[in-house]
Design a protein around this nucleic acid. Structure first.
Length: 740
DNA sequence: GAGTTTGAAACT
DNA sequence: CAGTTTCAAACTC
């Protein structure tokens, strides 16, 4: 077959067509090689890039003799075909630039190849064979063409978006020799690639399991053959002195990938350290776990909750080479994130100070033992599986031997791991999916689609589930008053359990698993829940529940108000939009101009945003660290924004101190900073972030004072107001209105 | 590690 | 909405 290039050929997308049969049987397993195709491009001599995913154009292939063999492989699941045309995973990307007159490269042949079975590739199945017609082979020369072609997803993801930098190969000519040309590309395209990197990150910043930066775009990774970039570069700089828990103690270890090996790269883990032993520390192999649907159980943060989120700063890599500015901002972000201690438990988010200050939640927390880690790709791949163990080791160092644990135990003390075999991790059976996190390498799931590359599938599936049950992803556990679980009624399973045989004494029981007592909502038989029997959930519990509901209603309104305040701030000239390129943000805080992404932002909120954990505080030193001119010498806007944020934080603390004699955690202002400094348009996420991202309201687990503290930042202009005034709902709103 | 039990989720 | 089936985690051996 013969297809025409457009004159401004840049990207070619080959999209296999789904068949009705596949859709009817729920998708075929297409593990392994699907087939090979031969792309013949008369007159073409140069480099093409291919990949089966939009972020996986990692095969830089020379075109010789006018032809290029392209293998479709590594499809993990036939579902890729079910949504063919919209699911980028079913696409093959070929992009390139000819060294010759494009007019001469006006057509190419694409045909299935045979005879590759012996190489591990099987012939493209009849019903899986891509339909090689103009409808399914798209010569995406520009965004609009791509958009119009059925590759909407790809377009939406921004790879062909006009505002994004050109593809990495665009504008690079005459590279008959890959090595040399790659170098030329690196040199010539560094800025573009930087933008590409950033843009991709903006689009896919959470392509990994949780809140973290995506891997380096494979398009960039491809260029790793560049020789003079093969040297390992490490950038590390403390943001402040490290003195245990008193200060930020932040180091950011930035290691550029080992470019000498295309298959290897060295991710940068966000480093936090409490020691000065080494500037290269990854004391927190668990990354950062943030709560999703999890129950904020401060008494026993053993991951009994249902969700966790990891926050990981990925490699800066080329950023360190091509954009010091970006690196700097990445560091800044890291310093922010550094505040957030690992939470292998309950998906909670901890402030370090809180942890060390005798928090009950510290048990599974990873010790800040400095560890020099030169992370290779394999290391990276093993991180998720190792991190838990590492954490465990840290926790037990010196005194305890690592003990063998069941998978569930690991689950409990780390982030989630599932073992789904049939559901592709797209049903609530899957704890990862249910918790709103991607599965990762540490999961033992099969045919998993709950992965970043299937983000849209995940999103759609989630929507389907939510359409059936809007509360499907809502937190199962209603938080307790003041974050403590002193009584059976202080926390409860929203829907209640239905145990018949386990008597709510085993983890079969969701209440027991969440360390909450059974309640009137439970239909369990013979309840013997040690956290509280159903029978014990009496009048007191009902009253408290009623109070919580009232406060949640209030909180919903507060969230709205707060969003308006943020909008006001935005209108005052905080050019938050620009900050997206200055500060690598957790992509959940990103916004997109695309309408679809606005929907996704909700998903991201659902997926990533943390709840304010008990005991979370923002040490003033952290604020100082973030204000350090060194960190922000090129970003006054961000500095200003951060100032706002952390002023709010400190005010929260003050208010908490005044309003509640108990150790009241303030909310993760760090993340507020992140949110603020991200695009201001995502106000929904912003407000949700600051309040209760999971439910969109202030978490029920908070005293009235606590609730007050949530909105007190707005009242910072009038710090003289008596916090007690906030106890009155009406007064609360009055003050809000006044301040606005 | 394999098999069983359990209860939530999904399905009808 | 209730009953049944499916599923994966929890548990047992």
């Amino acid at each position: 077959m013969n297809y025409s290039f457009s004159s401004d050929f840049k990207d070619l997308i080959l999209t296999p067509q789904s068949s009705s049969a596949e859709e009817s049987d729920g998708g075929k397993k297409n593990d392994g090689h699907l087939g090979c195709m031969e792309l013949s491009v008369p007159g073409f001599q140069g480099v093409l890039k291919t990949g089966t995913q939009e972020n996986d154009r990692n095969n830089t292939l020379p075109v010789q003799n006018n032809s290029l063999s392209v293998g479709f492989h590594e499809y993990s699941d036939g579902l890729a075909y079910k949504n063919s045309g919209t699911n980028v995973n079913s696409s093959l990307f070929v992009s390139g630039q000819t060294e010759q007159n494009l007019e001469q490269v006006s057509s190419f042949d694409l045909k299935p190849m045979k005879g590759r079975e012996e190489q591990g590739a099987r012939e493209w199945p009849h019903n899986e064979c891509p339909v090689l017609d103009s409808d399914h082979i798209h010569l995406a020369s520009n965004a609009q063409q791509c958009k119009d072609s059925g590759a909407q997803d790809i377009y939406d993801r921004g790879y062909f978006s006009n505002e994004l930098p050109p593809g990495p190969l665009q504008g690079v000519h005459a590279y008959g020799n890959i090595g040399e040309n790659v170098q030329a590309m690196m040199n010539a395209q560094s800025d573009n690639m930087m933008q590409y990197f950033q843009a991709g990150e903006d689009q896919h910043g959470m392509t990994r399991r949780c809140l973290q930066f995506r891997e380096q775009p494979t398009a960039i990774r491809n260029y790793s053959s560049s020789s003079n970039l093969g040297n390992e570069v490490t950038n590390s700089r403390p943001f402040c002195t490290t003195s245990g828990t008193e200060s930020l103690g932040s180091f950011v270890t930035t290691k550029k990938r080992q470019l000498g090996n295309p298959s290897q790269y060295v991710p940068t883990m966000l480093s936090t350290c409490s020691s000065e032993k080494s500037p290269f520390t990854v004391p927190n192999p668990l990354d950062i776990c943030l709560p999703l649907n999890s129950n904020m159980n401060s008494t026993k943060m053993d991951c009994g909750g249902t969700g966790s989120m990891k926050l990981e700063v990925d490699s800066v890599d080329l950023a360190s080479v091509t954009s010091n500015h970006y690196l700097e901002t990445r560091k800044n972000f890291s310093s922010v994130v550094d505040n957030i201690s690992a939470c292998p438990v309950g998906g909670a988010l901890y402030g370090r100070d809180s942890l060390v200050a005798g928090s009950k939640t510290s048990e599974p927390f990873c010790n800040m033992e400095p560890v020099v880690q030169h992370l290779t790709l394999q290391t990276r791949r093993n991180i998720n599986s190792e991190q838990v163990d590492s954490c465990e080791e840290f926790n037990q160092q010196g005194t305890k031997k690592k003990r063998k644990k069941s998978s569930r135990a690991i689950f409990d003390e780390g982030c989630k791991h599932c073992n789904c075999k049939r559901t592709k991790c797209l049903k609530l059976y899957c704890d990862c999916f249910a918790a709103g996190i991607f599965c990762d390498e540490s999961c033992a799931c099969q045919g998993c689609l709950n992965r970043p590359e299937y983000e849209d599938t995940v999103f759609e599936t989630r929507q389907q589930i939510e359409s059936r049950n809007p509360l499907a992803f809502a937190p199962k556990i209603k938080n307790s008053e003041d974050g403590k679980w002193m009584t059976p009624s202080s926390g409860k399973h929203k829907r209640g359990c239905n145990c018949k045989k386990s008597m709510c004494q085993k983890k079969y029981c969701e209440c027991y698993q969440a360390n909450v007592g059974c309640s009137s909502a439970c239909r369990c038989d013979g309840c013997k829940n040690v956290y509280g029997k159903k029978e014990d959930y009496g009048v007191t519990g009902e009253i408290m529940e009623s109070n919580r509901d009232s406060k949640e209603i209030l909180a919903g309104s507060l969230e709205h108000k707060l969003g308006a305040v943020v909008a006001k701030k935005d209108s005052l000239g905080l050019e938050l939009h620009d900050l997206q390129y200055l500060t690598p943000m957790p992509p959940s805080f990103n916004y997109s101009d695309h309408a679809k992404d606005s929907q996704k932002s909700q998903l991201l909120s659902w997926r990533y945003l943390p709840s304010p954990p008990p005991g979370f505080t923002v040490p003033s030193s952290h604020v100082k660290a973030l204000r350090t001119p060194k960190n922000f010498d090129s970003n006054d806007i961000f500095q200003e924004t951060s100032k706002h944020t952390f002023d709010l934080s400190s005010y929260i603390q003050r208010m908490d101190t005044h309003a509640d004699p108990s150790p009241v955690p303030s909310y993760p202002s760090i993340l507020m900073a992140s949110s603020e400094s991200s695009k201001g348009k995502d106000l929904t996420s912003f407000s949700r972030l600051q309040l209760c991202p999971r439910t969109g309201h202030i978490p029920s687990g908070g005293s009235p004072h606590r609730n007050s503290s949530l909105i007190t930042p707005i009242s910072e202009l009038d710090e003289t107001k008596n916090p007690q005034e906030f106890n009155s709902d009406g007064r609360l709103y009055d003050i809000l209105e006044d301040d606005m």
